[in-house]
Nucleic acid binder design. Structure first.
Length: 283
DNA sequence: ATGTCCCTTGGTAAGGGA
């Protein structure tokens, strides 16, 4: 599906890209529209739309001058890409994307990955499986899902070292100890997001040649992208850095600035995630 | 400072997911 394009706006010579887990696009519609209209982003990768196409708020994007592509199969998950610099070659799921399955039940494909070419950048909006618990069947699903994606990602830049690729979304992994507010609590408590297997799955993307485009401009400690609704995590500054923009080598060379829009986590009706914005110079 | 919040359903409270 495609909405209107506003070619009179844009970041001259460069592109501003962002990722944001909105935790229901319908519940967040007013905030998302307001943010699109004030953030000056050219491309927004959205996770957790929590809807199907038939109740997706297409008008929101049209009103804001964005084209949008959506992949939603149920009330869970759901990913989208909005762009005002073109939206071509839309792809839903990556090749061989593992479905979730457990013994005795049918396998289920989930709406966790969508891609489009926007302003010359191959953009992926990714909602990595949560994992739920270290001993839950969703944990090997999470690792396998990431391993499969990473295999493709490495091949893409092997085949074309100049490829402009952004893998962005909610990775549901805190790669470094400073990416959570209390690493001892997480490790001693056997929490997900910080286990060696999860961190290895994330590190494999870096080893393959992708780079975290935001971290150099958003140093920790205490720099987070997500704060649980429960237990006053946001006002207590107890968050997690789990949303990332990973860039291919050619894209990483263009990153000039980045920030986490922490203001968007404030106030009534906020998502539990904040947008992560990366500015790219012209190619 | 939201001491959760969002989704759905033969619903109007309860279960599931994060």
């Amino acid at each position: 599906m495609v909405a209107g394009v506003n070619s009179s706006v844009g970041n001259v010579g460069g592109v501003k890209i962002a990722t944001w887990n909105v935790n229901s696009l319908r519940a967040r519609a007013d905030r998302v529209e307001a943010w699109l209209n004030r953030s000056d982003v050219d491309v927004l990768a959205i996770q957790e739309t929590k809807c199907k196409d038939d109740n997706f708020p297409w008008e929101l994007f049209e009103n804001s001058g964005f084209e949008v592509a959506h992949f939603g199969l149920s009330q869970w998950n759901g990913v989208a890409i909005a762009s005002r610099v073109g939206l071509d070659d839309v792809e839903r799921t990556f090749p061989g994307q593992p479905p979730f399955g457990k013994p005795g039940a049918d396998e289920v494909q989930e709406a966790r990955a969508i891609a489009a070419t926007c302003g010359g950048v191959r953009v992926w909006s990714l909602y990595v499986p949560n994992g739920r618990a270290l001993d839950d069947p969703h944990m090997p699903y999470k690792i396998n899902w990431l391993d499969t994606l990473r295999g493709h990602a490495r091949q893409w830049i092997t085949d074309d070292p100049e490829a402009q690729i952004a893998l962005m979304g909610d990775w549901n992994i805190a790669p470094q100890d400073d990416d959570v507010w209390d690493i001892d609590l997480f490790v001693d408590g056997g929490y997900t997001h910080v286990s060696p297997a999860e961190r290895a799955a994330f590190q494999a993307f870096l080893d393959a040649g992708f780079a975290d485009l935001a971290r150099p401009f958003t140093p920790g400690p205490g720099l987070y992208t997500y704060w649980d609704y429960k237990q006053l995590r946001f006002p207590k500054k107890e968050g997690m850095r789990i949303d990332f923009v990973l860039g291919s080598p050619a894209l990483a060379a263009r990153a000039t600035d980045a920030f986490v829009d922490r203001e968007e986590r404030k106030g009534k009706g906020a998502s539990d995630h904040a947008p992560v914005v990366v500015e790219l110079s012209g190619p």
